[in-house]
Design a protein around this nucleic acid. Structure first.
Lengths: 139, 139
DNA sequence: CTATCTGCAAACCGTTTGCAGCGTT
DNA sequence: AACGCTGCAAACGGTTTGCAGATAG
């Protein structure tokens, strides 16, 4: 709940307006530990704000992602889902059953990446370490 | 070139027929070290087999991927590309400029993953470690 | 000769864009 | 009052499906 207000403040600071649809989406995303697809967000947010349009969901999620509050994650089947952002450089584990997501830190990785980078001559700009499986409740 | 024949043999063993369009796609994929999008495969394959249809590209890539000869990889922007498959459990580095791909092994990782799995109660089914950047030629 | 494969066209699905009206500030 | 935001409808790009004709075995 505290997060909801913090997100809305930041949104306002960055020149955005606080509106009904945005408030509904922010409340949802700031307080969920699952990765949600745009349609899923749409359905959940419509419960709070029935006039919600799917387009507004897309636009708001993009805005939140520009603010660094939300992150777009990739699924093996090619779908995209959105999730509240990590604190710093963390990696991700997502449940294929319910979308529950857990961030974890993999400090060890940077040395490994640097080694690969040197050996191959690649200039590495970003990396994904993402685990897929089933959470405690889903198996 | 040896790979081309090996792929075609396997394809035949699994009940597939060897046809002009398939031969063109197999030659291409078996001898390329880049990740290619379906349209890109389509364009390149059309040089060898002008009547090629895009649909055939999709179907053939899916078939090759079922045979484990080709792998579908994910790009940060959400695009899918296809690439000849890794030998065993290797990880991937893809150049965002030209699609050049390099596999590398990350033996260290399995212990790390097991640890995360134990701590979180997740049953981990698969993982991605994928690096994105620019290859030697592209920067 | 038969079953598979092919190409075309059309359907499809998730996402984006143009636009007129509404709501925030 | 001004500008940003919203919802609708339509466009869009990548992918899939139905089908009739072509082709490998």
């Amino acid at each position: 709940m505290a997060d909801t207000e913090r997100w809305l403040e930041l949104l306002e600071e960055k020149g955005g307006r606080i509106t009904g649809p945005r408030r509904a989406i922010v409340e949802l995303m700031a307080n969920s530990d699952r990765a949600l697809s745009p349609v899923h967000v749409f359905d959940l947010a419509r419960a709070k704000y029935p006039k919600m349009g799917l387009v507004t969901v897309y636009r708001t999620l993009e805005f939140l992602s520009e603010l660094g509050l939300v992150e777009r994650v990739h699924q093996p089947d090619g779908c995209h889902m959105y999730l509240r952002a990590a604190n710093g450089h963390e990696h991700l584990m997502i449940c294929s059953g319910c979308g529950k997501a857990v961030y974890f830190s993999g400090d060890d990785l940077s040395a490994f990446i640097e080694k690969i980078s040197k050996e191959s001559g690649f200039l590495i700009q970003s990396h994904w370490l993402q685990l897929h499986g089933l959470c405690k409740e889903c198996h």
